[in-house]
Design a protein around this nucleic acid. Structure first.
Lengths: 190, 190
DNA sequence: GTCTATACCGAGATAGAC
DNA sequence: GTCTATCTCGGTATAGAC
């Protein structure tokens, strides 16, 4: 059991994942959380403030997840594979990237937690790739920053493609394809 | 100058690109096209039918674009680079993939043109990659179907990442990173 | 803190005149 | 074919009692 405020945030997190920001209404949040209108507008100034709180929690949660993977002491390629081949439901969408396409994301405040998550993720991946280059296991001609964009995009785009083709497996294949390229490259170098 | 019906479709295409399906209202379409409500509901049964007509046109248009690239007589890697490095506005989103995340895309009818586009694109890329394998320029261990998912996802995810970080350049880097991997791989094989 | 009542607006569509 | 008037519903929020 948690307090009303937490319930609201929790329900908003679910709905942001399922429906995004624009398509989620306060009423849906209330229904799911069991709270009343009064509580909602007592704890938050409105939909936007609640959404930001929810996205902040979600970002922290996801950052903790990838840090667990990237801070392990496996080989860099195993870490990356570990990250890329995590089980994902292609039809549901990324728990945070999901909302990036919503028109309301033009608003600066809403973008803050989103930006924070992706910045940190990119930094982590770029660092990993630079270590690989230092060890001579990735060609010097490959730019770690550029490739980190590719890695992140593959995951995010996998969700989009899965939904477009209505095939939950697309995202897993997309990630597998990238891993295959990296493994092959590392094999040929050896 | 075109007739009212075409104007409506044309405006809907723009709005679907800019705002997606759920966030686009009939009123916005009317305002942009200069048509009135009467015309709208005379030519179409409603928002959904208009959107499908618009997406159908858009799909045809985009299919023609990639066919122009893939049916040229360049080397497969040049074709792929040509496709991946096309100029794209990362902040606007894919002209058709943009709407894949909208909640309303759960409706079967709306997904038809979306699915048609992505299916054909994937088929074209897969074919290209298989030719590369036939020529021995891509390792047999690489699965063309799997890798085609990666290619498409990189583009789609590039748009998402660009919007998340609010950096129009992310998508271009993501695509460049994938090309770099493929070029490197092809170099080492030689 | 939480509830119910109320208000305002725009989405999406229909009706019937021209 | 196109126009204006009208309708219903839900999104988003405020007011004031408890």
């Amino acid at each position: 059991m948690k307090d009303t405020r937490s319930q609201l945030i929790s329900s908003m997190k679910e709905l942001l994942w399922e429906r995004g920001y624009d398509a989620t209404s306060p009423n849906q949040v209330l229904e799911r959380s069991g709270a009343g209108k009064g509580s909602f507008y007592h704890h938050f100034s409105g939909k936007q403030e609640l959404a930001i709180a929810a996205m902040d929690e979600r970002a922290n949660e996801l950052i903790a997840e990838f840090e667990l993977i990237f801070h392990s002491d496996q080989h860099w390629l195993d870490k990356l594979e570990n990250y890329l081949l995590q089980p994902r439901d292609g039809l549901k969408g990324c728990r945070i990237g999901r909302i990036a396409q919503d028109p309301s994301m033009d608003e600066l405040l809403l973008r803050v937690p989103l930006k924070r998550y992706f910045s940190q993720l990119q930094q982590a991946i770029e660092q990993l790739l630079n270590q690989a280059k230092d060890k001579g296991e990735l060609p010097e001609s490959i730019c770690a920053h550029t490739l980190s964009c590719t890695v992140i995009s593959t995951v995010q785009g996998g969700f989009v493609m899965s939904r477009a083709l209505y095939d939950p497996d697309c995202i897993n294949m997309a990630c597998q394809g990238l891993i295959d390229l990296l493994r092959t490259l590392s094999t040929l170098k050896t």
